[in-house]
Simulated scan of single mutants.
Amino acid sequence: MLKEKIRALAHEMLPTAIETRRHLHANPELSFMEHNTAAFIAGKLDAMGIPYQKMANTGLVAMIEGTLAASDKVLALRADIDALPIHEKNDVPYVSKFPGVMHACGHDVHTTSLLTTAGILLQLRDSFAGKLKLIFQPGEELVPGGASMMIKEGVLENPRPANILGQHVMPELEAGKIGFRSGTYMASVDEIYITVEGKGGHGAMPHTTIDPVLITSHLITGLQQLVSRNANPTTPSVLTFGRVIADGAHNVIPDKVTIDGTFRTLDENWRQEARKRIEKMATALVESMGGKCTVFIKPGYPVLYNNERLTAATRQHTEAYVGKENVTDLDIWMAAEDFAAYSQITDACFYRLGTGNAARGITSGLHTATFDVDESAIETGAGLMAWLAVKSLEN
Rank of each mutant, 00 (worst) to 15 (best):
T111R: 04
K89Y: 10
M63H: 11
P144N: 08
A76C: 06
H35S: 14
S71Q: 06
E65R: 13
Q123T: 08
I86H: 01
L114V: 13
I86Q: 06
G145V: 09
I64P: 04
D72C: 01
A69M: 10
S113K: 10
E88C: 08
M55P: 00
G130V: 00
G43Y: 12
V61R: 00
V61L: 04
K97T: 15
N36V: 14
Y52F: 05
M48Y: 09
D80Y: 03
G106D: 00
E34Y: 11
S71H: 07
L124G: 03
N90E: 10
D91P: 08
P138I: 00
E19C: 14
G139Y: 01
I64T: 07
V74N: 03
R78C: 07
F98H: 14
S71V: 08
I86Y: 01
E88D: 10
G146D: 07
R125A: 01
G145I: 09
T67E: 15
L60D: 01
L45Q: 02
G139F: 01
L121W: 07
E65F: 04
K97G: 15
H103A: 06
G100P: 07
D72Y: 00
I135D: 02
L132Y: 05
A62G: 03
C105K: 04
Y94Q: 08
N57P: 05
S96H: 04
H87Y: 11
A62I: 02
K133F: 00
A76P: 00
L77S: 06
H110S: 14
L142Y: 09
Y52K: 01
L75K: 03
A104R: 00
I120A: 02
I86V: 14
P138T: 03
L114C: 10
V109A: 14
R22M: 13
K73N: 07
V101Y: 06
H103M: 05
H107W: 09
I81W: 03
V109T: 15
C105W: 04
A79K: 03
T58V: 08
H107Q: 09
Q137W: 07
S96Y: 01
T58F: 06
D108Q: 12
T111N: 04
S113G: 12
T117W: 10
H25I: 13
I81V: 11
E29H: 10
D46H: 12
E140F: 10
L68K: 15
N36I: 11
L122P: 00
D82C: 06
Y94G: 08
L114S: 08
L68P: 11
A56T: 01
H87C: 13
I41C: 06
D82S: 06
T20L: 13
L122K: 12
K133E: 02
N27V: 13
F136L: 02
V143Q: 11
K44I: 12
T116N: 07
G100H: 09
T67M: 12
N27W: 13
